[in-house]
Computed example of a mutant assay.
Amino acid sequence: MRLSTRPRLIVSAVLAALVLAGCAAQPDPERETEAATAVEQWAALDATELIDQLEATPVDERPQDVMASIRQDEVLVSAPDGSQEVSVPIEESHYLSIAPYVDQTHDCFFHSLTTCTGEMGGEEITVRVVDDRTGEVYVDETSRTHDNGFAGFWLPRDISATITVTAAGRSAETSVETGPDDLTCLTSLQLT
């Protein structure tokens, strides 16, 4: 019995799909094991150590086998392929990473310790954070941004504050909140 043209095309398409599926890249168990080990090593640190170490690591030396994203109450550490994710709790404080800029920025809500970069790496900045309700000064210091262009600050949770950043004779100011639904990555401070 001979198949008509249409059924032969369908059979050919199904066979081609099966062949291509068989030729697709297969998971690499060794690479997955390495990524899982890296995730476990970073997740073994407490949140403060994890954040401090990754923020201070020069951009070209940052780990390629792990992703780390800061949420309001945890750092999510994961393998780049999404095969593993571990939560490292943040106790009591809210971490806010600030990347002031002059010419170029990116949208950001949750700071990525492994991929976020700002334009002002290694620059001296003065940062002042003042509570909008009480006038309490939480931060008033001159520091240097990390190689990734960010400077991070531990702030009390559930406050409204005004942040002022000054660098090289330019400044910017904005309001922030540190509640359960607020950002951990501030990239909208354009210095003028």
Rank of each mutant, 00 (worst) to 15 (best):
T5I: 10
T5V: 09
T5E: 13
R8T: 14
I10L: 12
A13W: 00
A13Q: 02
A13C: 10
V14Q: 03
G22H: 07
A24H: 03
E30M: 02
T33L: 06
E34M: 01
A35G: 00
A36K: 04
V39M: 04
V39Q: 04
Q41V: 12
W42E: 02
A44N: 12
L45Q: 14
L45A: 10
D46Y: 02
A47H: 02
A47D: 11
T48N: 14
E49V: 06
L50P: 04
L50A: 11
I51W: 11
D52A: 15
Q53S: 11
Q53L: 12
A56N: 13
A56E: 15
P58C: 10
P58E: 13
V59N: 05
V59D: 13
D60L: 08
R62Y: 08
D65H: 08
M67G: 01
V77E: 06
P80H: 00
P80K: 02
P80M: 10
D81N: 01
S83W: 07
Q84V: 08
Q84T: 11
Q84F: 00
V86H: 09
S87L: 07
V88D: 04
E92A: 08
S93I: 08
Y95W: 13
L96V: 04
S97C: 13
A99W: 06
P100I: 10
Y101I: 00
V102R: 14
Q104D: 13
Q104H: 15
T105C: 04
D107K: 11
C108S: 10
C108L: 03
H111A: 05
L113F: 03
T115R: 08
C116M: 08
C116S: 15
M120H: 08
M120L: 15
G122V: 06
I125N: 09
T126I: 03
T126K: 06
R128I: 12
V129Q: 01
V129W: 00
D131H: 03
D131P: 04
T134V: 02
V137M: 09
V137K: 06
Y138G: 01
V139N: 02
D140E: 15
D140C: 07
E141D: 12
R144P: 04
R144Y: 10
H146D: 14
D147G: 00
A151H: 10
G152Y: 08
L155K: 07
L155G: 11
P156E: 12
S160E: 15
S160V: 09
T162K: 05
T164K: 04
T164N: 09
V165F: 07
R170I: 08
S171Q: 13
A172V: 11
A172F: 09
A172S: 15
E173P: 00
V176F: 04
V176C: 06
T178I: 01
P180E: 15
D181G: 09
D182A: 14
T187Y: 09
L189Q: 12
T192V: 12
T192G: 10
